[in-house]
Amino acid sequence: MKSLKSSVYIVGAGPGNPDLLTVRAQKILESADVILFADSLVPAEILDLCKSDAEIIRTANKTLEDILPIMIKEVRSHKSVVRLHSGDPSLYSAIHEQMQLLAEADIPFEVVPGISAFQAAAANLKVELTVPGLVQTIILTRISGRTQVPAREELTSLAAHQASLCLYLAARHVENAQTQLLEHYPPDTPVAICYRLGWHDEKTFIVPLNQMADCTHQEKLIRTTLYVISPALREVKARSRLYHPEHSHLFRPRGGGEE
């Protein structure tokens, strides 16, 4: 691609596998001068895409007060900077405050989306999380921990929908999560427990909801774990109307004629 602007590129690295980077993310990584990456969450293999003289800065041990001045200084030195986050930047990535402060400092930035863990989980499980006649809603959420969830978004109320619920950042609070989910989902509802998706040591377990906490403890899963709770994980026979021969639309009018 053309040489990058002197700017901050907030890039989603996806769940782990470098093959799941977007093409744009890959091109930006190949050209950037400075890469600040969340080394506790992003595999080092992704850095193999960077140019040989790129400056690599690990940020797992840094605060925003450490990171922000580096980004500002490098952009003002006419360098292109990548802030590499895991997953997709729109979910639990703490970019909100970064963007606010960059804007206040008059530093240009761009957000490059990435594959989120729930999408990688569905692909690994070979399921569609919105099955006609069964479930048509996906809820992405977390449980209260150090960061509190607003009362109106507590897991108990979200579970009432019995949708496909993708639960992030919950392994340390799994008993509480299971208790709240059981208030609305049947005990035998399938749960996919997805650990370190996209990494070389990834693991996936499918258990009934009432065994979610036990499995988490038995496998010693503490972090980087996603729970997918969904009736779509069962063996279900269903068919969408979209490609049904009785379903007509602009490009396939009833009777097969042209409109």
Rank of each mutant, 00 (worst) to 15 (best):
L125R: 07
V42P: 03
E74H: 13
K203V: 11
E65A: 14
R83V: 08
V135T: 14
I107L: 12
A232Y: 09
V174K: 00
K203T: 14
N176S: 11
V34C: 02
S80Y: 04
I35R: 01
H249D: 15
H85G: 00
Q136I: 05
S116F: 00
F205P: 05
G133Q: 08
V111F: 06
E65F: 07
A32W: 04
A170H: 01
L29C: 02
E259Y: 12
D33G: 09
I28A: 09
R254N: 10
Q26E: 13
K79Y: 10
A60F: 06
Q148T: 11
T216M: 12
I57R: 04
F109H: 13
T130H: 03
D33N: 14
V11D: 04
E55F: 08
H217C: 04
W199V: 11
H173W: 03
G198A: 12
E110I: 09
I107G: 12
V42K: 06
L233W: 01
K220Y: 08
L64E: 11
V131G: 07
K2G: 08
I46M: 10
S93A: 15
H96S: 14
G12Y: 02
I72L: 04
P231G: 09
R83K: 09
V11Q: 01
S116R: 06
F205C: 07
L36W: 03
A123V: 14
K79T: 11
Y243M: 13
S164G: 08
L134D: 02
E128T: 08
V112K: 03
E110Y: 11
L155R: 01
Y185P: 04
L250K: 15
A121I: 00
A232G: 10
S86M: 13
H249S: 15
Q178F: 00
G145F: 03
A122F: 12
P18F: 00
S116Y: 02
R234M: 10
Y9A: 00
L158A: 03
A171M: 07
P208C: 11
S3A: 14
L68P: 06
D48I: 09
G145D: 05
E65T: 13
L169H: 08
Q178Y: 01
G87E: 10
L197I: 07
L20I: 01
I46F: 03
D66A: 06
L209N: 00
H184A: 10
H184N: 08
L226P: 02
Y195L: 03
K126H: 13
R234C: 09
P253M: 08
A32Q: 07
V131Y: 04
I10M: 10
M99P: 07
C50S: 15
V236D: 05
H184M: 06
M99G: 05
W199C: 11
S31T: 15
N210V: 00
